[in-house]
């Protein structure tokens, strides 16, 4: 404090786009590299800042979807029609371009294997991104914390990380339940409606000591699920939420 400048805990830094992957027709993942990146905790996000030639800036938050790793982070971005920042990230930004960001941010919506469980993860659309970081961390750490992911997507083709989730589900202590809210394959036997209290009751099962819930996605879905979980007896402090705002599926 006393006159000396403390280096900013979170300075803006430049990361370079190492790779870009199409996850679904409307969602991409960006692999970013930065020597200054020290790693993160699953669930954290970064602020991304775009600057136009005339100095105009736009800033948005994006969750980190990769498992913690120094020097590398992945973001998963859904293209929001008429959006200002997401179409730039999904369409304009290319490998070798650079992106300005600050982070990792957030110590509240985080989970590491040491936090235990049982773990209930509930996602809507791109809200699966920070939960994927948790699942990847869980797999990397060899954790056997009983875990359920309840994941709402519009259709089969819009399930982000579908194949990787199928692989992860080979782990008998991880259960993945999808619901497809707009359209579904003819032979689909799973849920076909928005997440509601009855679905949570079926999927979440009995509330056990140590249970933790992480809910992420569009604000409306998050608030609905959090309310239903409190009704089911989850202590409010055991429910962590990350609202993405009005957008998303």
């Amino acid at each position: 404090m006393a006159g000396t400048a403390v280096p900013g805990r979170l300075a803006w830094q430049l990361a370079s786009v190492a790779a870009k992957r199409q996850e679904t027709p409307r969602v991409i993942s960006l692999r970013l590299e930065s020597d200054a990146w020290a790693g993160h905790l699953p669930g954290q996000h970064v602020d991304v800042r775009l600057t136009a030639e005339d100095g105009y800036q736009a800033q948005r938050s994006y969750s980190i979807s990769s498992a913690p790793e120094p020097g590398v982070l992945e973001l998963t971005v859904e293209d929001i029609p008429d959006g200002e920042v997401s179409p730039y990230l999904t369409e304009v930004l290319q490998p070798a371009d650079r992106l300005e960001l600050r982070g990792p941010i957030g110590g509240y919506f985080t989970w590491t294997a040491a936090d235990g469980g049982p773990l209930l993860l509930v996602a809507g659309g791109s809200g699966v991104a920070p939960l994927m970081s948790m699942l990847r961390e869980r797999a990397a750490a060899g954790s056997d914390v009983p875990t359920t992911l309840l994941y709402s997507s519009r259709s089969w083709d819009e399930i982000i990380y579908r194949e990787e989730l199928e692989r992860l589900a080979a782990d008998p202590t991880l259960r993945i339940v999808h619901t497809l809210t707009r359209s579904h394959p003819a032979d689909w036997a799973g849920y076909t409606r928005r997440i509601d209290a009855a679905m949570l009751a079926e999927v979440a099962g009995a509330l056990l000591p140590g249970s933790l819930a992480y809910v992420c996605g569009p604000t409306r879905l998050v608030e609905q699920v959090a309310t239903d979980l409190v009704t089911r007896g989850y202590p409010p402090a055991a429910i962590k939420t990350e609202r993405f705002g009005p957008t998303g599926g």
Binding site: D47, G103, I105, G106, F109, T241, R243, P246
Partner: peptide
């Protein structure tokens, strides 16, 4: 109605200008 509210977490980047520790904690 459009849901404009977010979690306090979303402001942590902005507030990191002020706090040396993680603002959301």
């Amino acid at each position: 109605e459009r849901d404009t509210r977010l979690d306090g977490n979303a402001a942590a980047g902005l507030l990191s200008t002020v706090f040396r520790c993680e603002p959301s904690e």
